[in-house]
Amino acid sequence: MEISVNRPILMHIQNHFQRGAIPHIIRDLQPVVGKHYEVHTVALQDIKDQTLVDEFKDIGITVHALGCSRWNLPLAAFRLRTFLSRKNLAVVHAHAGRGAMLAPLCAPVSTKVFTTFHSVASGFSFPTRKGRLLTDRWLTGRTCVSEAVNESWRAFGINNAATVYNPVDVSRYKIDTAAADTVRKEFNIPEDVKLLLNVGRLTFAKAQDVLLDAVAALKKQQNNDFRLIIAGQGPDEEKLKARAKELGLEETVYFAGFRKDVQKLLAAADIFVFPSRWEGLPVTALEAMAAGTVVLASDIKPTKEYLTDGVSGLVTPVNDAKKLSDCLNNLLNNKAKRERFAAAGQAYVRQYFAPEHIARQYLSIYEGRMNEPK
């Protein structure tokens, strides 16, 4: 299908523009959605990653920024309303808390406004949850990234949301062996040493503290040598580094900071460990499955929507460092099991999270509501 010159405009709204789940969703949907809509995205705050802006430009998505601080909601509302009024918009699609609160109030009356809930209700502050509830009545439609997210917001009073999973493009995670080996060389990890990987913001929700305790216990029972790379930034970074030192893990755990080469990290890893306390839809775990890396994840509701314990990976109870350590020990000492789980996980992602499939769901939602009154 060729791209129409006179496409209607689809405007995504984000709190900020930096690498993470939301930009990656918009990016992966573009090959299909971009044939039907001229796609833009606007951030309430400043742009933090110019290279990502350039990548979006290359695939036909225009990025805008309003330059508002996180705490200045009135200014964000004023600038967003002014900005949206200057565009001939067909669809506004808002993501995250503040953007989703403001979009129904700031979009032109003739524009259809949709929002996606990316996390369970408890992952937001009470004022944000209440704000979304108050402005929800003016939305055209709403989606949730998992059934667990949908269930949590129904309990809070927001209904009629469709569940649409995040897209994961398996082709992005085809990394050759030589490229993956550069990761081991960077961190001086020998080829015969097993590599564990965790990717995510360094926050309480992601439970890297539990992972460190599990690794400390694993060191005491593990015959084979191993290393752990934790990739990401966040408010708990110094606390986690101090905990690793306290546990004597300075030579076992590497804090890699923010990384743009997550695909290489995944390709180099033997096991992806994801012990989160709560999630909306764990995109990085799905990316690990797409890369053919076995996943060990916490037993939270969203996990069970895509990972079958003992078939496509392993799950372990939340906040249980001992069980997490035992599961790691199990996987580290069973290569055949790792390979079997990894293959099953990759096949599942390819079948159910293909960007083309997810994009068609969004197009159906947009177009199915276009003739309804706002």
Rank of each mutant, 00 (worst) to 15 (best):
R98S: 12
R98T: 15
R98M: 14
R98D: 15
G99A: 07
G99P: 00
G99N: 10
A100T: 15
A100H: 05
L102S: 02
L102V: 05
P104V: 04
L105V: 09
L105I: 09
L105H: 09
C106R: 06
C106F: 07
C106V: 01
C106W: 03
A107H: 09
P108W: 11
P108T: 12
V109T: 14
S110D: 11
T111I: 09
T111P: 02
K112P: 06
K112D: 06
F114A: 09
F114R: 11
T115I: 15
T115K: 14
T116G: 01
T116V: 13
T116H: 04
F117M: 12
F117D: 07
F117N: 12
F117Y: 08
H118D: 02
H118Y: 02
S119G: 14
S119C: 13
S119M: 14
V120S: 07
V120L: 08
A121T: 05
A121C: 12
G123Y: 12
S125M: 03
F126D: 13
P127R: 07
P127I: 03
P127A: 12
T128Y: 01
T128E: 03
R129I: 04
R129G: 01
K130F: 13
K130C: 15
K130Y: 14
G131T: 05
G131H: 04
L133Y: 11
L133I: 08
T135K: 01
T135L: 02
D136S: 14
D136G: 12
D136P: 00
W138I: 03
L139H: 03
L139R: 03
T140N: 07
G141R: 01
G141K: 00
G141T: 00
R142D: 01
C144N: 13
V145G: 06
V145A: 05
S146W: 04
S146N: 03
S146E: 00
E147Y: 12
V149W: 04
N150D: 09
N150S: 01
N150V: 04
E151P: 10
E151F: 08
W153G: 04
W153H: 03
R154A: 10
I158N: 02
I158P: 00
I158F: 00
N159C: 13
N159M: 06
N159D: 11
A161M: 03
A162H: 12
A162N: 14
A162L: 15
A162T: 13
T163F: 10
T163W: 11
T163S: 07
T163V: 13
T163Q: 05
T163D: 11
V164G: 13
V164W: 08
V164D: 04
Y165W: 14
N166M: 12
N166R: 08
N166T: 04
P167L: 12
P167V: 09
P167S: 13
D169C: 06
V170H: 02
V170G: 04
V170L: 12
V170D: 10
S171G: 14
Y173D: 14
Y173P: 12
K174P: 11
K174H: 15
